[in-house]
């Protein structure tokens, strides 16, 4: 494992911790999209099925379990926690997730490495992760005001993906025959989804202002 990959994973982990701390400390999930969080849960469940049949490293296993547990913890807070669930913007978070799930699944059936259940589900999770942030970005666009923690959460999620891109470039030059077209293309799409957000985030940071999205 190279430093870019590790930095990417740590940024991903940190983004989740920031979101959980925000929810716990403020007892509020205002501005957070439950749809996006549920999509991430689907992504992790379908991707980490290999926990049952392959072992890569202790690091790998532990991280997978942490991602799964934290995803379900966040969903639990937003759906079941007495105080937190009342702060959820249900009326604003109306993205039709089937418009993401169905095309990703069809694409996974058509473009994959191997026509097996686990491999198709793994490929589906790669495609779905690329677009899973969209309900969150749409919610942000609707509610306009972006609180600091939600902004940092999304910024870190985007940074994690950008670091993975650097990791793939590094691996391409250091590992003989390393090629991952499905992962590379999806990862590039996923990073591009954040570009607009990055622009406004950096602008707010440079001007020392609270982040606002244009109407």
């Amino acid at each position: 494992m190279n430093i870019f990959r590790l930095a990417g994973d740590m940024t991903h982990l940190l983004s989740i911790i920031v979101l959980l701390l925000k929810i716990q400390a403020t007892k509020s999930c205002a501005g957070v999209s439950l749809k996006t969080q549920e999509l991430y849960a689907v992504v992790f469940v379908t991707r980490y099925l290999d926990l049952f049949y392959s072992f890569i490293s202790l690091y790998n296993t532990v991280m997978k379990i942490i991602f799964l547990l934290t995803a379900f913890t966040i969903i639990w807070y937003m759906r079941k926690h007495k105080v937190v669930c009342q702060t959820y913007d249900k009326e604003q978070d109306t993205f039709r997730v089937l418009f993401l799930i169905v095309p990703c699944f069809v694409l996974a059936l058509l473009v994959n490495h191997e026509m097996s259940v686990t491999e198709v589900l793994w490929t589906f999770s790669i495609y779905l992760e690329a677009v899973a942030i969209l309900p969150q970005l749409v919610l942000l666009q609707r509610t306009k005001n972006v609180d600091n923690l939600t902004g940092n959460y999304i910024f870190m999620l985007g940074s994690y993906r950008a670091l993975y891109l650097v990791n793939w470039v590094y691996r391409y030059f250091t590992e003989l025959g390393y090629r991952q077209w499905i992962v590379w293309v999806s990862g590039t799409v996923q990073t591009c989804v954040y570009l607009d957000f990055f622009y406004y985030y950096v602008q707010a940071w440079r001007n020392n202002e609270r982040m606002k999205l244009p109407g």
Binding site: R5, D9, H12, S54, E114, W122, Y178
Partner: peptide, 10 residues
Amino acid sequence: EEASAAHDEL
């Protein structure tokens, strides 16, 4: 071969 290599990432 390619498939298993991809699974070492998270």
